[in-house]
Computed example of a mutant assay.
Amino acid sequence: YSNPNPNAKPFILTTGYWKNKCYHYNQQDYKAERETEKNVTADDYDYYKRLFETSVCSSCNAKFTYDNLPSQDRKDNELLHIKDNCLPACVSCNIAHANRDPKIASLHIKMRQYAIKHNLPMTISDERIYKLLRECITGGLAAVFHRENIAGETQINEPSYDEQSNKVISQDNENVTTLVFALDGNSLYPSSYSSVKNENISCTDNRMYMAGRSKFYSEKPYVVKNCIDQRKDIFVAKVKGYFPKSEYNNLLPLPPIFRNIEI
C-alpha cells in the first residue's frame, strides 16, 4: 500500500531532528547495557538526509513524509544502532516490529496499512488519548422531554435554570410542534456509527464522527493552537472555563453544565 496521503509534504531531515534521534538511540542502547561507541552520530547527518529522501520504508514501501516520519529499524535487535545493522523504516512499522516474530509484525503492518487505505477504525493504543476521549463518553445528552410529538398538538418543552434551587425546571411554553424533522433512533444514531451523510447534521460535512485512530497527542500550547488555527484535521481539545450561574440559561446545551445540575 502506498502513502495514504499522496499530497503529504516529503520529509526533509533537519539537524535538530537527527541529533534528537541519535540521543534516543544511545539512551536505548545504554539502558540495554550495549556499547554505544560505534553508534550513528550527529556527524552522519548528510548520509541519512540523502537516505531518507531517496529511500522508502523497508517494511511497507511507503515514502517518508511529515505524516509518515522515518526511523532506524535494527535488523538484529541484539546489536547496536550502527549503519550496517539499520534499515530505514516508518516509525509505526518500527514500533510494530519491536522484538516480535517477523510474520506477526508483517501481518500487523499490513493490517494497519489496509485500515488506513480504507479509512477503517483502529484501537486507540495511546492511554492519554483514551482517557481524554473517555471523559466525554458519559451517555450523551439523552434528555427526552416528550416521548410522543404530534405536529400541531404537542407543545414545545423549554428547560430553564433556577439559581436559588440549583435545578433546571422543565416546562411547556406557548409554542406548538409543527413538524418532526429527524427520528432519533432511525436517523441520528446510525449516522454516528456508520458516518453516513445526514442532512440534519449541519457541521462536519453532514456526518457524525467517532475517534477511529489518532495521529498524535500534545499538551504544548503552540501545537494545540496550530491544530485549531489550521483546521486541517478533526481534533479533540480539552479546555478549562468558568461560567457564572447568571449565564446558565444561555449555556444549558453545554454538556459540562447540563450533566452537573439537578433537573
Rank of each mutant, 00 (worst) to 15 (best):
89 A>H: 04
110 K>L: 15
109 I>W: 06
84 D>K: 11
84 D>T: 08
69 L>M: 08
106 S>Q: 14
73 D>R: 15
107 L>Y: 12
79 L>E: 11
77 N>P: 10
73 D>C: 10
86 C>E: 01
97 H>G: 00
104 I>Y: 05
77 N>H: 14
91 V>G: 00
96 A>P: 02
71 S>R: 11
108 H>P: 07
82 I>D: 00
74 R>A: 04
94 N>P: 00
73 D>I: 07
101 D>N: 04
94 N>W: 01
77 N>C: 12
85 N>T: 03
103 K>N: 06
95 I>V: 02
82 I>F: 04
85 N>R: 09
88 P>I: 05
72 Q>M: 14
95 I>C: 00
89 A>K: 07
79 L>M: 10
68 N>S: 11
113 Q>T: 13
80 L>Q: 12
116 I>Q: 15
80 L>S: 12
95 I>K: 01
108 H>N: 11
81 H>S: 07
69 L>E: 05
87 L>F: 09
115 A>V: 08
107 L>M: 13
116 I>N: 15
73 D>Q: 14
71 S>W: 08
113 Q>C: 15
83 K>H: 06
105 A>V: 07
89 A>N: 05
77 N>Q: 14
112 R>E: 12
90 C>R: 08
86 C>T: 04
110 K>N: 13
94 N>C: 02
72 Q>G: 07
93 C>D: 01
79 L>D: 11
75 K>E: 11
100 R>K: 04
116 I>E: 14
107 L>T: 11
82 I>Q: 03
74 R>G: 05
83 K>G: 01
107 L>Q: 13
84 D>Y: 06
88 P>N: 06
72 Q>R: 13
114 Y>G: 11
75 K>Y: 10
86 C>F: 02
94 N>Q: 00
100 R>I: 00
78 E>W: 12
99 N>P: 01
107 L>G: 07
75 K>W: 09
67 D>Y: 13
101 D>G: 02
74 R>E: 04
77 N>E: 12
97 H>E: 00
78 E>K: 15
91 V>Y: 02
112 R>N: 12
97 H>Q: 00
78 E>N: 14
87 L>H: 09
101 D>Q: 04
113 Q>M: 15
80 L>E: 10
106 S>F: 10
94 N>D: 00
70 P>Q: 07
73 D>H: 13
85 N>F: 02
102 P>I: 04
103 K>Q: 06
114 Y>S: 14
108 H>E: 12
104 I>G: 02
82 I>T: 09
96 A>N: 04
71 S>F: 06
116 I>C: 13
107 L>E: 14
80 L>H: 09
67 D>E: 15
114 Y>P: 08
114 Y>V: 09
101 D>E: 04
73 D>E: 14
